[in-house]
């Protein structure tokens, strides 16, 4: 079972940032449940096998004030994928620094090393006000992944590949 983590403060953002990821999992007949990050305990939060931390809007940055709520990731041995805001969360938990970097819309990037089944030039959709980690990032030893862009908009196969790990 995959646990989707909603980091949106605004209720209406669920439909834009969490539901599209839920829809990819449903389409692939993958069992999941969704919870808000504020409802998770500080230990390894549930019996889930994997975690996906979804993104949120440019202005909805309440989660950055509550980074301690994600400290469980540091000792997590299970696969985690962070999308956009989720990527910032993972970066901050592993000691990264946040800086302003506004990007909105489509852009071509080059993924040099194979990342969750994709490699080479890809068109990606950005919606970020900040940057902590690079476009794609993987922890050196753990199955922890992050994308700055939104794979649920372009490159859905990244999410599908993560689910197959």
């Amino acid at each position: 079972m995959i646990l989707l983590i909603n980091i949106c403060k605004e209720k209406l953002h669920f439909y834009e940032f969490v539901k599209p990821v839920e829809d990819i999992l449903s389409k692939n007949k993958i069992e999941f449940s969704t919870r808000h990050y504020k409802d998770l305990t500080n230990q390894n939060p549930t019996k889930a096998d994997k975690f996906i931390i979804c993104g949120t809007s440019l202005k909805d940055n309440d989660f950055l004030e509550n980074i301690e709520k994600f400290s469980w990731i540091k000792n997590c041995k299970k696969p985690v994928l962070g999308i956009c805001g989720g990527s910032h969360v993972i970066g901050l938990i592993f000691g990264g620094k946040i800086r302003r970097k506004k990007e909105i819309g489509l852009k071509e990037i080059n993924i040099e090393k194979e990342f969750l089944g994709v490699k080479g030039k890809k068109q990606v959709y950005h919606l970020n006000q900040f940057r902590v980690l690079p476009e794609v990032w993987k922890h050196k030893t753990k199955p922890i992944y992050a994308t700055l862009f939104h794979p649920e908009v372009r490159n859905k196969e990244i999410i599908e590949d993560f689910c197959r790990i």
């Binding site: 605004e10 209406l12 439909y15 834009e16 539901k19 829809d23 809007s57 202005k59």
Partner: peptide, 12 residues
Amino acid sequence: NLECFNPLWQKN
């Protein structure tokens, strides 16, 4: 400096 909501985004 406005929030932007697209509640039908990527909807089937």
